[in-house]
């Protein structure tokens, strides 16, 4: 009776939700702190704001594809807003506010960077002023959005941690791990990967970036270690889950993709950058990609290693 009810689709959704939320938080922090305006052009906020809504929308669509009757009769999805004791209902409410907020932020950021957009829109909507108070608008959107993004990142972990029937999941370490991973992957995507691809110098623009990266990866290693250690100590089904990850079917993914490539490699790169002041462009992009990859596979391992209690 050990069927895996949730698989890849849910893992990818948890990952995209987390990374989208993380990318939003990074962009919103740069916006609210005024850091964004110290540079003529800031692809990080552009990527962070524009991509986060898109990522979470894709993730949500994947989640809908995982439904049974709700996929065949989509109007049933409206029912999912109704049970306030269900973490999934909380998540759906958070998402339905966060997705529009992220898109509004993305559009505002685009319009701010490319004034031509407003000029083009004004051809039809002549009542619009020549310019809009973008900064004020974005301040409001970012302030609300940052809370919704935190909610999104944390809820993806709580969704699993309330399931007492899967002892490995039933710990507050899981939401903590997912939150840290969300911030880490969000930075990896919007600072190291995309920003660097759009504008190579962007990766070196934020001096404290390697420090924050290294700290987050370090924290992720500690949380992941604690999750596995407490699971092992707990014994029973939780220990079985840990064994699946460390020595069983998930061991190659864990040691090679997550521990080696996804955590140790970017940690080493960022520590190197801390000591030397900077790291190479290609290496930085690779480290960003590795962080993102680790985020996906950490979630996949956690979902796939679920061992339900023996009846």
């Amino acid at each position: 009776m050990t069927e895996h009810y949730w698989g890849w689709l849910v893992a990818i959704y948890l990952f995209m939700g987390g990374m989208g939320a993380g990318a939003f938080i990074v962009a919103a922090v740069l916006e609210l702190s005024g850091e964004r305006y110290k540079h003529e052009y800031c692809p990080t906020t552009l990527v962070g704001s524009g991509v986060s809504g898109l990522l979470i929308t894709i993730g949500t669509v994947l989640l809908i594809f995982d439904l049974g009757a709700g996929l065949r009769e989509p109007w049933r999805i409206i029912n999912m807003f109704t049970n306030w004791s269900s973490v999934m209902t909380w998540g759906i409410w958070i998402l339905s506010f966060f997705i529009p907020t992220a898109f509004v932020y993305g559009i505002l950021e685009l319009m701010h960077v490319y004034p031509g957009i407003l000029a083009w829109v004004r051809k039809w909507l002549k009542f619009l002023p020549e310019t809009l108070p973008y900064r004020a608008f974005k301040r409001v959107v970012c302030s609300i959005g940052i809370l919704l993004a935190l909610g999104t990142a944390v809820y993806t972990g709580v969704l699993l941690s309330v399931v007492e029937a899967v002892p490995f999941w039933a710990t507050p370490l899981l939401p903590a791990l997912f939150l840290v991973s969300a911030l880490s992957t969000g930075m990896g995507l919007s600072l190291d990967l995309s920003a660097a691809l759009v504008e190579p110098e962007a990766a070196h623009r934020f001096k404290r970036l390697p420090l924050i990266h290294a700290a987050l990866i370090g924290l992720e290693i500690i949380l992941l270690g604690l999750l596995l250690y407490t699971g092992y100590q707990q014994g029973g089904e939780a220990a079985e889950s840990v064994q699946i990850i460390l020595t069983g079917a998930g061991s190659v993914v864990f040691w090679v993709v997550v521990a080696g490539l996804g955590l140790a490699f970017p940690l080493a790169i960022n520590v190197y950058a801390l000591i030397r002041g900077s790291h190479g462009y290609v290496v930085g992009v690779l480290a960003g990609a590795a962080i993102v990859l680790a985020g996906l596979f950490v979630r996949f391992l956690v979902v796939a290693a679920a061992v339900p209690v023996t009846v």
């Binding site: 949730w6 995982d66 049974g68 709700g70 029912n79």
Partner: peptide, 8 residues
């Protein structure tokens, strides 16, 4: 909706 959360 068939989300299978109950089954888990």
């Amino acid at each position: 909706v068939g989300c299978k959360y109950c089954a888990i």
